[in-house]
Amino acid sequence: MEPHEFKLNEEGLRAVLPPLEAEIMEYMWKVKIATAGEVYEHMKEKHPEMRRSTVSILMNRLCERGLLKRSVETGRGGMRYVYSITTTREEFEKRIVETILNALMNNFKEATFAYLSKIKK
């Protein structure tokens, strides 16, 4: 997943993901694999008004973004979708930094280089 937007006024994952999607990803990186129902139960603690539909839509949106993948699991209780992470949080953060720095180097090469050198010192 390549982030296309970086919100300077947001903290953490919210800078690159919408707030609820960021919260879901925080949880998914913790548990690695979960059903939408399990994520819903977790999200409901903080957002009591949240509905199953919201979680399902957001998780499928995260699949479209390439951060989660969906597979069918057949077991006790029948068939169901399970979602798993496609990348670790560290890898994701690394990719964000690389993407942003590449963009800065492409657009403001000298200033970026000068600033990075200054930080390095």
């Binding site: 919408p18 949240m50 919201t54």
Partner: peptide, 19 residues
């Protein structure tokens, strides 16, 4: 609710969802 929300999510960058 699902259908409406899905259309809205697709149509917007989704900064937040108002259930």
């Amino acid at each position: 609710y699902y259908e409406d929300l899905r259309v809205n999510v697709r149509a917007s960058a989704l900064p937040g969802i108002e259930p």
